[in-house]
Amino acid sequence: MNNNDSINKVIKVENLTKKFGSFVAVDNISFEVGKGEIFGFLGANGAGKTTAMRMLCGLSKASSGKAKVAGFDIYKQTEEIKKRIGYMSQKFSLYEDLTVYENIRLYGGIYGIKEKDIKPRAYDLLENLNFLDKKDALVKSLPLGWKQKLAFSVAVFHKPKLVFLDEPTGGVDPKTRRQFWEQIYEAASRGITIFVTTHYMDEAEYCDRLSIMVDGKIEALDSPQNLKKQFNVNSMEDVFHTLASKAKRGD
């Protein structure tokens, strides 16, 4: 691999492992994610996705292995990493009792964006979303689809290199789900790397590359098309079933 290539890798993971006592939650995983890539991180409940994601975000310390996120070491430079990543989960991202603008300002402040820069950038964001007239509306008064759009925009407001999306579309209707993915596409086309987990297999198809975790290990890693070819099936659903039904853990 040449030098240039390794610079373009936003995530580099080598033999990463996390143990809780004798339980190996994440078992020796290795993968790379390139700049601007939409990387799907799939696996059954309890396969170790959340644990792996936490280690990459610098929230949880790995037991062994190496990993670099946005060029920084996950053991020593977690603060640097946190400045350069965005995070959005289904459960929490916006404060419902703050207005749209207040939420944006808050996140801008959290990521150390200068006060004088926040305002123009916030207005740009609101204009892009066609939200300008909703600037002072409380977030809880917005429809779900809007909230989600806003949550994503806020997660990338500080122009991170990489954004982690943890089941961002659970329980969301088909239309809102699609709008959301279009936003992801758009962000990726601007060079933001997307790291996403989902239980929707059609969403898996939208990813450039996918990994499927089973019992803490990465059992498959490729583009959706190649995976289907590799397992000789027609849909990602079938790929997932073939792999995940091998799982022994939990049950």
Partner: peptide
């Protein structure tokens, strides 16, 4: 009521 929300595809099936 939404017994399968947040459940992986295999368990859902």
């Amino acid at each position: 009521d939404e017994p399968t929300t947040g459940v992986d595809p295999v368990s859902r099936k």
